[in-house]
Design a protein around this nucleic acid. Structure first.
Length: 301
DNA sequence: GTTCCTTTGAAGATC
DNA sequence: GATCTTCAAAGGAAC
C-alpha cells in the first residue's frame, strides 16, 4: 500500500518512462548463454542454490543499512563548519529523503532522462544468479519506514577536519604519489619535486557513486555468497542483469540515493569537479575499445 | 606493481 | 546538441 502510493505518485511527478518492450542498451545486452556460463561454470550457481537451502541463513549477507543515515540521522553528523560554510541550513539530516518516500515534499529526486528499460533477460539464469524472486529487495527493519542500509560515504562528518570521528570520507583517498607523478628527469629536483610531494599529500577526492554503483556495493556480497564467484567482472555482469530486472521503484531508491550522494559530495567538496580525476587512470587503448564496440555491434546485429 | 576485465550512470571532452 | 571518453567499485587474472 505504502509502496504503491509512492510508486504511483512518483510516476505522476516524474513522467517516468515506461519500460520499452524492445529496450535496447548498446552496452548492456547480455551475452546469449544458457546453463553453465562463464559466470557459473558447471552450473555452480544452481548447486549453490541447493546448498543454500540446507544452510542456515547466515550465508546471506547482512542487510547493509544504506538508509540508516537517512532514517536515523544524528544531528551531530553535520559539522557546523561545513553546513555554515556551504550555507546549508542545519540540520542536514536528509529529511528530504523521508520526504521523497512519503512524497510530502516537493523535492522528489529526479531520475535520469536517459534511463533505458531493457527487455527481460533473454536467457535462463540459474535461480540464485538471475531470478529476482531469489534476490529480494532489502526488507525493512521493524518499525523502520524503509529498508535500512548505509553507504559509508553517506556518513556525514567523516573526513571533515576536526571532526571527532576523524575517519576520512571514503571519497577521499590518499594519493599514492606514484600514479600522479609524471616521469621526469630525477636530477631536476626543486620545483617539480616539491610539486610532486605536494601532490602526494593532497588526497584524491573520488567521484560520488552513481545509482548502479550503490546497488553493486550493496548486492555484491549476496551474489558472491549465492554464486560462489569471486571474479568481479563476472559478478558485475550478474549485477548488471539484476539491475535491469529491478522494478522502477526498486531502481528509484538507488537513483535517489545517488542524488543524495552527489548532493552531499557537492556540499563537502564544493570546488571539486570530476575533471580533477580525469585522465589520472591510464587511458585505455583506443584500439581495444573500438574492437570491443565493433564486436558488440556484430553480436547484436 | 600495474592494468584489464565487467557493469551502469554521471559528467567532462570533443566535434 | 550528439557522441565519445573517463571514472567511480571490486578483486582475480594477466602482464
Amino acid at each position: 500500500m505504502y509502496k504503491e502510493t509512492v510508486y504511483s505518485a512518483f510516476n505522476l511527478l516524474m513522467h517516468y518512462p515506461a519500460p520499452s518492450g524492445t529496450g535496447q542498451h548498446p552496452q548492456s545486452q547480455p551475452p546469449l548463454v544458457s546453463g553453465p556460463s562463464s559466470q557459473c561454470p558447471s552450473g555452480a550457481c544452481c548447486l549453490a542454490d541447493q546448498h543454500k537451502a540446507s544452510q542456515p541463513p547466515h550465508s546471506v549477507p547482512q542487510l547493509s543499512p544504506l538508509y540508516e543515515h537517512f532514517s536515523n540521522p544524528h544531528p551531530t553528523q553535520v559539522p557546523a563548519d561545513i553546513s555554515q560554510r556551504q550555507g546549508v541550513h542545519r540540520p542536514l539530516q536528509t529529511p528530504e529523503l523521508s520526504g521523497f518516500y512519503s512524497l510530502t515534499s516537493g523535492s522528489v529526486g529526479q531520475l535520469p532522462h536517459t534511463v533505458s528499460w531493457p527487455s527481460p533477460p533473454l536467457y535462463p539464469l540459474s535461480p540464485s544468479c538471475g531470478y529476482r524472486q531469489h534476490f529480494p529487495a532489502p526488507t525493512a527493519a521493524p518499525g523502520a519506514p524503509y529498508p535500512r542500509f548505509t553507504h559509508p560515504s553517506l556518513v556525514l562528518g567523516s573526513g571533515v577536519p576536526g571532526h571527532p570521528a576523524a575517519i576520512p570520507h571514503p571519497a577521499i583517498v590518499p594519493s599514492s604519489g606514484k600514479q600522479d607523478l609524471q616521469p621526469y628527469d630525477r636530477s631536476l629536483k626543486t620545483q617539480a619535486e616539491a610539486k610532486a610531494e605536494k601532490e602526494v599529500k593532497k588526497p584524491t577526492i573520488k567521484k560520488p557513486l552513481n545509482a548502479f554503483m550503490l546497488y553493486m556495493k550493496e548486492m555484491r556480497a549476496k551474489v558472491i555468497a549465492e554464486c560462489t564467484l569471486k571474479e568481479s567482472a563476472a559478478i558485475n555482469q550478474i549485477l548488471g542483469r539484476r539491475w535491469h530486472a529491478l522494478s522502477r521503484e526498486e531502481q528509484a531508491k538507488y537513483y535517489e540515493l545517488a542524488r543524495k550522494e552527489r548532493q552531499l559530495h557537492m556540499q563537502l567538496y564544493p570546488g571539486w569537479s570530476a575533471r580533477d580525476n580525469y585522465g589520472k587512470k591510464k587511458r585505455r587503448s583506443r584500439e581495444k575499445h573500438q574492437e570491443s564496440t565493433s564486436d558488440n555491434s556484430l553480436h547484436y546485429s
